[in-house]
Simulated scan of single mutants.
Amino acid sequence: MALEVIGAGLGRTATFTLKFALEHIGFGPCYHMVENFKGARRNVPLWLDAIDGKPDWDAIFEGYRSTTDYPACTYWRELSEYYPDAKVILTQRDPDSWFDSVSETIFSQAMNSRLPESPFGNLMKGAVFGPFNGGDIADRAFMTDWFVRRNREVIDTIAPERLLVFEPKEGWAPLCAFLGVPVPAEPFPRVNSRDELGAASDEKGGLPPDPADLEVFAEGYLAELQAKAFPAS
């Protein structure tokens, strides 16, 4: 199965919302960072190979129709070339708002404190923090400037007919028109995982470094967000 949709937006740009939206309109399963958590013992070694310049994209995305979030978004260029028929979606948000969000969650010391010596820590170092080239992730000016320049690079690189620049507040209409599918009757999912992610990792004292524990953590976290994305009427 070849990828049909590549999410180029960085983590904390409503990538979980996009995951659930894509799955709801027929482009699932969608590969999100949580998939690494869920299948850490299988997936982390594959991503470490990709970081080392030996990617097996077909193995990584076996069974998936779309991607969003880290670590795939770091490789938007490589994936767009490897899957030339896939469409690309760039989720965006205000740069300062993005900086506030990543600083409190996926880039926070509290969340990452237990990871440096684990395999998942190496994945974070290579695929998430690596693109900053040693820049200070606590420096607002540096990070927001990098955010803007990086997103502009996506826009300037991907052919316009292949790219959707998207903010979730726009709802179903532009997403469904871009992908050529009907607009669902259900409201567009509104998932803000900032509080849930912080609370879940705080309860564990940071993300679990043991892959088996990380998989258990991910299952509960994903189930909680799925229930909020499309609550039962």
Rank of each mutant, 00 (worst) to 15 (best):
R140Q: 05
T105P: 02
A110L: 15
S113K: 15
W146K: 01
F147N: 07
K125C: 08
N133E: 13
A127T: 05
R152Q: 12
S113L: 05
G121F: 12
G134R: 07
F147M: 06
N133K: 12
V154Y: 01
D139T: 05
R93I: 05
T144L: 03
D94I: 08
A138Y: 03
I137M: 08
N112G: 05
D100E: 13
D139M: 07
W98C: 01
M111H: 14
G126W: 07
S101F: 07
P119Q: 08
N112V: 01
W146Y: 12
E153F: 04
M143V: 03
Q92R: 15
G130H: 08
M143T: 04
L115T: 09
P119D: 09
E153L: 02
N133T: 04
R149K: 14
M143Y: 00
T91Q: 03
L123G: 02
V148M: 02
R114E: 01
R140M: 02
P131Y: 05
E153R: 04
R150S: 12
E104D: 13
W98F: 01
E104P: 06
R140H: 03
S97V: 10
K125F: 10
R149N: 10
S108N: 13
F107L: 05
E104S: 13
M143S: 01
R114P: 00
S113A: 13
N122G: 11
F120I: 14
T105V: 09
F107P: 02
F120D: 00
Q92K: 15
S113C: 11
G126L: 06
G126K: 08
S103T: 12
G121V: 12
L123A: 05
L123F: 10
A141R: 07
S103G: 11
R140C: 00
D145L: 01
F107D: 02
D94Q: 09
N133R: 11
F99S: 04
M111N: 15
D145E: 13
T144F: 03
P95L: 13
P95Y: 11
N112C: 09
G134V: 10
F129V: 02
